[in-house]
Amino acid sequence: MEHVVDLAYLNDISGGNELVRNKFLQVVKVEFPQEKAAYFDLMKSKKNKEAAELVHKIKNKFGILGLNNGYQIAVDYEEGLKVEDYSLKTNFETVLTVVSNYIQKI
Rank of each mutant, 00 (worst) to 15 (best):
A8G: 10
F92E: 00
I106H: 06
K44S: 03
L42K: 02
E31H: 03
D85Y: 06
H3Y: 15
F92G: 00
F40P: 01
E79K: 12
L65Y: 07
E84S: 14
T90K: 14
L54T: 00
L88M: 02
Y102H: 08
P33G: 05
I106M: 12
V27H: 10
N22M: 13
F32N: 00
D41C: 06
F62E: 03
V75N: 06
E93G: 07
N11D: 15
I73W: 00
V75Y: 04
L10Y: 09
Q34L: 15
I106S: 05
I64D: 10
A74I: 03
V95R: 00
K89T: 04
K59T: 06
D6W: 08
A74W: 01
N11C: 14
V95M: 01
K46D: 04
A38D: 12
V99F: 05
E18T: 13
K29N: 05
A8H: 14
L10K: 13
V95N: 00
I64E: 09
T94R: 11
E78I: 02
N91H: 08
E84K: 11
G66E: 04
E31T: 04
A51H: 02
E35K: 10
G15W: 14
N69E: 15
L54I: 00
K36C: 12
H56E: 02
N22C: 11
E78V: 03
I103H: 05
H3F: 15
Y71E: 08
L67C: 00
D12I: 14
E84D: 15
G80W: 04
Y9D: 03
L67S: 00
K23Y: 11
I106T: 08
L88V: 01
T94L: 09
K89C: 04
N17H: 13
K36H: 12
S45L: 07
V83W: 05
Y77R: 00
Q26H: 10
F32R: 00
E84R: 13
K82L: 12
M1G: 15
D85V: 06
M43W: 07
Y71H: 11
S87L: 09
K59I: 06
S14E: 02
G80C: 07
D76E: 05
E78F: 02
V20G: 09
V27L: 15
L96Q: 01
N60F: 15
N68I: 10
N48D: 12
G63I: 02
N48V: 06
A8Q: 14
N91I: 05
E2W: 09
V27R: 11
L25E: 10
Q104P: 05
M43K: 13
Q72N: 12
E18P: 09
I73F: 01
K105C: 08
H56C: 02
A74G: 03
L7D: 05
V5F: 09
I64T: 12
K61E: 07
L25H: 12
T97H: 10
K29D: 03
L88F: 01
V30M: 12
A38E: 15
E78S: 03
G70L: 04
N68F: 11
H3D: 09
F32E: 01
G66M: 06
E50V: 02
I13F: 11
A38Y: 11
E53S: 10
K105H: 10
L25K: 13
S100D: 15
L25D: 06
K49I: 14
F92I: 01
V28D: 07
Y9T: 03
